[in-house]
């Protein structure tokens, strides 16, 4: 009998971007059923870490394994659901909420396979899960930022993944959508799902998080309980709205 593989295993990972090391020897293991938050200031390397886990950035050194398989040989992408920070709707062609969510189902449906009843049901269930069933026929572009974020989560859920990887799911999202998002995530975890998410701050997600990993200057400087917010971020009245500049002040960690 062997121990189950960690769902995500990152060992001694080095990622270089534009000649600058963004991650320096990062090691992180996520077990099945874990809910792990990667925290850190903008530019700390936390988004780079999950992009490397997803194979979107090549490692300079070290290895990433998903479900025990090295990333270069990993083919079982149906088990992974990715929620990017925002919708990258490049061109001007509109797409309905249903069309975008159904594109996430292709992970299960496979290439050139017909759309079966199970696929239609999964898309409908994912829409219901995020409370957007009544907006299914609307253009995604006409939705608010919070609703668009829920569309992206539904798109990932439509593929019925075992692991959800989310990049700043609550950034720039109103409180009502954040609450709705926390409920959706709690249901996913209740079904036995594993979650790895990047956050600037946790908000209503905090009670769900089992473990926090803090990245600072490309290194993991904390791995354990969720740290207490410090500085002006600790103020309950603090309105956490940042302009989307490439860098801003370190918030949760290393407040000056």
């Amino acid at each position: 009998m062997t121990l189950p593989h960690p769902v995500v295993a990152v060992d001694d990972l080095v990622v270089v971007y534009g000649g600058r090391p963004v991650l320096r020897s990062v090691t992180l293991h996520v077990a099945a059923g874990d809910v792990v938050a990667i925290l850190g200031a903008n530019g700390s390397g936390k988004s780079t870490l999950i992009r490397a886990v997803l194979g979107l950035l090549p490692p300079r050194q070290g290895e990433v394994r998903l479900f025990g398989t090295p990333l270069r040989r990993f083919r079982d992408w149906r088990r992974v659901g990715y929620v990017p920070q925002r919708l990258d709707a490049s061109g001007g062609v509109p797409a309905t909420v249903h069309e975008v969510v159904a594109s996430g189902r292709l992970a299960r449906r496979g290439f050139l396979r017909p759309n079966r009843q199970a696929d239609r049901d999964a898309v409908a269930a994912a829409l219901a899960d995020v409370g957007l069933t009544d907006r299914a026929g609307d253009a995604v572009g006409t939705l608010s930022g919070g609703q668009q974020q829920r569309v992206l989560i539904a798109r990932a859920l439509a593929g019925a993944p075992d692991l959800l990887i989310l990049d700043e799911p609550t950034a720039g999202v109103d409180a009502a959508s954040q609450e709705s998002f926390a409920v959706t995530l709690r249901r996913f975890v209740g079904r036995g799902g594993t979650v790895l998410l990047v956050a600037h701050e946790l908000g209503p997600l905090a009670p769900l998080i089992g473990r926090a990993v803090v990245v600072h200057h490309g290194e993991i400087v904390h791995d354990g309980a969720v740290p207490e917010p410090a500085g002006h971020h600790a103020d309950p009245d603090h309105e956490h709205v940042h302009p989307h500049a490439p860098y801003d002040l370190p918030g949760l960690w290393g407040t000056p």
Binding site: A89, S103, L106
Partner: peptide, 22 residues
């Protein structure tokens, strides 16, 4: 015939990559 897959890759190529599409 390829609309679902071509839509996915044209709409969000990065997501389509993580979906495992060719």
């Amino acid at each position: 015939l390829l609309r679902p897959w071509l839509f996915a890759v044209s709409h969000d190529e990065e997501f389509a990559r993580v979906t495992g599409l060719p």
